[in-house]
């Protein structure tokens, strides 16, 4: 099998893996790195469950091959909490606002929202809905996910009320 060596970092840790070029980044993270927090919901780029940050950008890891990650810096859901497991403000906001039920879409939403909260521009309601419409959740009806990101944005001083229409 024509496997290749690829080196990248995940959550700050260097990983050296051997993959077939056709193995997606999602499968590479899950199978080669054992990082199963990144979930696959559709494998064709619609649901966003597999969203991770690649060099700071939210990326559907089912739409990128592992070999393309050579030299990249990747962040996954496993890197959000403190090493002792303490939840970060975004994770805590999801917990307190009941932003998850089955939890399967949650890592993708967390990574998408992480990017949103780290952007230099403050977040408003319209942009929140626009960006979070990238991902699918089948359990919550979204309201609590939006509330959670709003709460985290407020806590992190990233929230701005929309200009009145």
């Amino acid at each position: 099998m024509n496997k290749r060596e690829v080196v990248f970092t995940v959550n700050g840790e260097t990983r050296r893996v051997l993959v077939e070029p056709r193995r997606t980044l999602a499968d590479t993270l899950r199978e080669e790195c054992g990082l199963t927090g990144t979930h696959l919901g559709c494998e064709h780029g619609v649901c966003g469950a597999c969203t991770v940050l690649v060099d700071g950008q939210p990326t559907r890891s089912c739409l990128m091959f592992g070999v393309q990650a050579e030299g990249a810096s990747i962040r996954t859901v496993e890197g959000l909490a403190a090493p002792d497991g303490t939840l970060n403000p975004l994770q805590r906001a999801f917990w307190e606002n009941h932003g998850l039920q089955c939890g399967y879409c949650t890592p993708g939403f967390l990574m998408l929202a992480t990017w949103l909260l780290e952007r230099p521009t403050p977040l408003d309601e319209e942009e929140l809905r626009h960006v979070l419409s990238s991902n699918l959740c089948r359990c919550t009806g979204y309201q609590n996910i939006l509330a959670a990101v709003r709460a985290a944005a407020r806590e992190l001083d990233r929230w701005t009320e929309s200009a009145p229409a």
Partner: peptide
């Protein structure tokens, strides 16, 4: 009461069937 289920799911530490298929 916040759900006791949530913290592992929020850390990506849940175990769904595909996670134990490795």
């Amino acid at each position: 009461l916040p759900r006791t289920e949530d913290p592992p799911l929020l850390r990506g530490e849940g175990r769904y069937v595909p996670d134990i298929a490795l």
